[in-house]
Design a protein around this nucleic acid. Structure first.
Lengths: 364, 364
DNA sequence: CTGAAAGCGCTAACAC
DNA sequence: GTGTTAGCGCTTTCAG
């Protein structure tokens, strides 16, 4: 085992006690604002502690208290700005509550997810906030038995019945699909990454519901799932939602003679590739083809034409999730709760301004 | 103090010892793969420990070892994909080395940076990897005295003389500026965020060097610093490198009758706003104006025309930095080292393909 | 209001 | 090979 390069002698409670001429115990109580110490004594102790540079040893404290004041957040990747925002908000809330955030990245890999949970367990965190890799991930199964509070964020796990805080993907995609249908599109293609996650599943459900709402027949070929290619690069983590994938998929579609009226996408990045494919075909947005993205990334409004998209309540989701988790960490034992927050459709130039009567089916 | 909802009785080393009928010590040695235990005994102990669900108490372990096997990473924000990649790589390297990563976000605020360092200290990490908020941040001053290893990433702190691993911003921006000068531009505008950080300072230096290299006179008005507007939103963290800022700045320029030959930018996001401003003016890229971004974000190659930009060695930088930090954590006491890794210019449609002789000065 | 003593769970000396 | 003893720095009984 390596020698740890720590200080020769960090000043300890005992040192403070010696300096002020009181017992370790009294000093501890004074410093922790607990009753049983005279105010004058307390002040003197604090001053002395400060003076000789006393810093409490968190390890000893954690040992006796059984808590490290740390939350682990397991996220699939940081590339998706939605996740970055989730983490940013979670970190901020954790700090606010006197906790710190241990970040564990699963990089969309089930193996790394299992490793992440193990690391969280090993490192003695007080609770786990997780965006699972898949809808049937078993990485978290042992947690409740181990007594570690868990809250899921953004993606659900079917068999787990855990707390879940997420975007409302069903209603979001339903709203999105309505938006194109109500502008006259009847041949609408949905492009999604082929991941076994609840968000994709829910968006597909929302898509189908919307068609049903407007009486437009569903054609399963209108849902294009981009095959994952995890093996593509071994060294670098694999990333979903690549613009080039959408570019390829759209180009394929056009080459097979298909020309949908509208595309609704599972991610704004898809719009980048799609726009390129449309330009190559000489198709104009929104006149020939309508496009709606997902996630309202910063570049969306600057595309030409500006991309209509769905703004996600990332900070709200994370804030609620962290609040819930901290509540559970402090011993609350309520039954699992699911909260899906409605996203917001942002209409920009990639959609025609005026609504038209549906052409393909009866009006609702 | 809140009751922590931990298990009634986690199985401990003592429990294992009791079950196998050996001393706590022997069990500890067996489980930790240390010599002094018979192989048969070791196997039996491991099996029993596994069976009764023994999980080592990290708090006790940390206390006696004086280490939490955790590295704190203090980053200004996650919104910039460069930082996201830094964090991703750092996390991966940390895990690989048996450490975990505590993420602390300063959100470009000096106050939060100070709080982050305090949190890191309080939470007993073994070392700190930091992207400082400013070139003269004093948040880290006490660290060496406290015996906590520190390695800076991406941005330097002038007075600190700490280890630094970063992009080579000087040579990167020099190369970028050469690229436009050598294509005939003589009136080149650099747009940067007005932050007091070494990266901006270095890129400005590289810009001036490039002009000097080609004998093009320097006009200080050709460096446009976007005034920071931290107060804009109190609730949400402030974010630099906004497309709209570049849009505004460029529009101002055009309205004042300026029409530079080329723009070199401190961030790809600026290109989004700039492209929009150029479109509004009816200026074509690259025929009328050349543009080079910084960071090679995923959208860059999908802009119209595709954005030339500088690809940053984020993973290399983070990997080197983490390696160095872990080395220091294990007690190494070498003098501070600075490593600047050369970024790569990626030429795309926003630059004319052919080089021309410099028009403004002598050829080198 | 203050102190003494015990112990959190683990590792590290040193003995046998 | 294995057990005994001590102690990491702190909090928490329980006495005074």
């Amino acid at each position: 085992m390596q020698e740890v390069g720590s200080n020769p002698h960090r000043t300890t409670l005992k040192d403070v006690a010696q300096v002020v001429g009181l017992s370790v115990n009294t000093v501890s109580r004074a410093l922790n604002e607990r009753p049983g110490v005279g105010e004058a004594t307390r002040q003197r102790i604090k001053a002395e502690a400060e003076r000789i540079g006393y810093v409490p040893n968190i390890h000893a404290r954690s040992l006796v208290l059984g808590s490290r004041q740390t939350i682990a957040m397991i996220v699939t990747n940081l590339f998706n700005p939605f996740f970055a925002e989730l983490v940013s908000e979670a970190e901020s809330r954790a700090i606010e509550a006197g906790y710190t955030l241990l970040l564990l990245l699963s990089e969309e890999s089930e193996d790394r997810e299992v490793a992440a949970v193990a690391a969280a367990l090993r490192s003695g965190v007080d609770g786990i906030l997780a965006v699972p890799v898949s809808n049937d991930s078993h990485a978290y199964d042992g947690l409740t038995r181990a007594g570690l509070p868990l809250v899921l964020v953004s993606r659900n796990i079917a068999h787990l019945n855990a707390d879940l805080y997420a975007n409302d993907n069903v209603s979001g995609m339903r709203m999105t699909t309505h938006a194109v249908l109500d502008r006259g599109a009847t041949d609408v293609v949905l492009i999604e990454e082929d991941l076994q996650i609840s968000t994709v599943r829910d968006r597909i459900a929302g898509f189908r519901l919307a068609l049903q709402d407007r009486g437009v027949p569903f054609d399963s070929r209108n849902i294009v799932l981009i095959p994952t290619r995890r093996s593509a690069s071994v060294a670098l983590p694999w990333l979903p939602w690549q613009a080039e994938d959408a570019h390829r998929v759209a180009t394929d579609l056009f080459e097979r003679g298909r020309r949908p009226h509208a595309f609704v996408l599972g991610n704004d990045h898809f719009a980048l590739g799609l726009y390129a494919a449309l330009r190559a075909q000489g198709l104009r947005v929104p006149i020939d083809v309508m496009v709606i993205g997902w996630g309202d990334q910063p570049f969306a409004r600057y595309l030409d034409p500006p991309l209509s998209t769905v703004a996600l309540p990332a900070r709200q989701v994370a804030a609620h999730a962290m609040k819930r988790l901290l509540h559970k960490v402090s011993g609350s034992q309520e039954p699992p709760e699911t909260l899906c927050i409605e996203p917001e459709l942002i209409v920009r130039g990639s959609l025609p301004r005026e609504l038209v009567l549906a052409t393909g089916g009866q009006t609702p």
